[in-house]
Amino acid sequence: MNAQEKTMDVTLRVWRQKGPDQPGRFVSYAAKGVTPEMSFFEALDTINEGLVAKGEDAIAFDHDCREGICGTCCLTIEGQPHGPDQAATGCQLHMRAYKDGDAITIEPFRARAFPVIKDLVVDRSALDRVMASGGFVSVNTGSAGEANAILVPKDKAEAAMDAAACIGCGACVAACPNASAMLFVSAKVSQFALLPQGGPERDRRVLAMQRQMDLEGFGNCSNEGECEAVCPKEVKLANIARLNREYIRAMFWSHEVHPKVDLEGQEE
């Protein structure tokens, strides 16, 4: 097969923004000679090489592992966080999804809690602060213990692993019509709530993480389900139902109250 026949020319319409408080706008770039085997990010790399050669500012976009495991990439491609593929991150998208002459709009993840740093890069440290508020187990684990010292039913272990598959990319927030972080928080609460080690702190944890989520300015969940549809790790809405159960349990059946926390996650 002649590789020359399979190249295509596409137009990338990219959000450019110099800094957090600067106005942004869309700029169109022609990507010529793109091959179907190229990853979407390689097409962006190609444009950036051209921009740098001309002495212009390269398009800033977050990426690290480029194999769908780190959760760093945060592009909204044609209105879909991570692009059109199911159960995949933006870095796993290939140009074979497009055809010659396509114009593709690329925007950053949009949410008040995810301020734009530059171009397509957003600050997702709000998710880290939610984790710091309660997404941990406060025990000194020491060296690895005997694996069967605490027995875990297989179905519970599987469900906890499915929740722990969350890579914290924030696509759920980006896709949610309300910019809610409920799927992320539910996955993080679930991975602990399902395991015996997470038991002692479960009430305190869910109240602290919920409070921090609200303080960060995320929206409210209205069960639209867009989060589940875009999640690259297929985290399920059932986790949000579990989060709600954990919250009801902590609120009405435990002695815990909401911790008073400031925006830095420090308890007052």
Partner: peptide
């Protein structure tokens, strides 16, 4: 809640495409 949701995304998207979660009712 709707007011807070509206405030949670001050800059909206240029292009929005559902991946299948929303229904006409929602």
């Amino acid at each position: 809640a709707r007011w807070q949701n509206w405030r949670a995304r001050p800059v909206g998207y240029d292009t929005v495409a559902s991946k299948g979660g929303r229904t006409i009712g929602s």
